Amino acid sequence: MLFTIGRKRHSEELVDLLLACHGRIRSFLEIAVSIGERPNVSEDEVADGSARVQRYFSEALPLHVEDEEQGVLPRLHGRSPDLDRALERMSEEHDRHVRPVRRLCELCAALRSEPGAAIVRVELAGVARRLRAELEPHLEAEELLVFPAIRSLLTVEEQQAIVRELRARRQAP
């Protein structure tokens, strides 16, 4: 298979789980760019890759955002003014990402139906590149500011509670 994602890590530490999500975000964006930019990709690979990208961004990414918004943000809020500003920025950026992510999913759905649609592939690559440019600084800021705060300011019990919530969110019907 042309489009693969790295091995799953089986850590139960909160920051490791969040970092793994960030890795998947980056990987699926690269798949989306490749679908649009690589002319030698078969229609079967386009359809399969598009389905996987669409599934990730329509199902898994919203769960990751909920993990941060409902689990991490309320527990870190109020710990420091600088951290509060970073958390507010994180939340605002989550809202700004909704429309481009929706467009990415629409284009992937179109390619699942018509994997030979070259113009859609080109548009997908453009949308994915722009989304990558928006998401990369967002992900880096979380990794540099929020994730270290999780490790240093939240107790092991608080982190484990967030992991339980994260797991429950993914098992919900």
Rank of each mutant, 00 (worst) to 15 (best):
R167V: 15
E69G: 10
L29D: 01
A117S: 11
F3D: 06
L61Y: 15
L14C: 08
R85I: 09
A133V: 04
R9P: 01
V101K: 03
E123T: 13
I119G: 08
H64N: 05
I5T: 15
S34L: 07
A168K: 05
L144I: 02
M90A: 11
G6A: 15
L17N: 11
L83K: 09
R102C: 02
A20K: 00
A149Y: 02
R52W: 06
Q159R: 15
R132V: 02
N40R: 08
E158N: 02
A20M: 05
E140Q: 15
R24W: 02
A125H: 05
R96H: 08
L154G: 05
E88I: 04
V72A: 08
T155Y: 00
A149N: 03
I25V: 15
R85Y: 02
V127D: 04
F147K: 09
H77D: 01
I31F: 07
E45G: 07
L107P: 07
L18Q: 03
E13Q: 14
F28V: 06
V33G: 00
S11P: 03
E13T: 06
L154Y: 06
R55C: 07
F57G: 11
D48N: 08
A172H: 09
V127W: 06
E30D: 12
M90R: 03
R9F: 02
R103S: 03
A51F: 12
E66S: 08
A168R: 11
C105H: 03
G23T: 13
I119R: 13
S58Y: 05
L14K: 07
P62S: 02
D48H: 05
A133I: 12
S91Y: 07
E157Y: 06
S34D: 15
G126W: 00
M1P: 10
L104S: 08
E93F: 03
R121E: 03
V163S: 09
E12C: 04
D48A: 14
R75C: 00
E143H: 11
I35D: 04
C21G: 13
E106P: 00
L19K: 11
L83D: 02
V101T: 15
F28A: 01
R26G: 14
S91L: 06
A47I: 05
E37L: 13
E45C: 01
V33I: 15
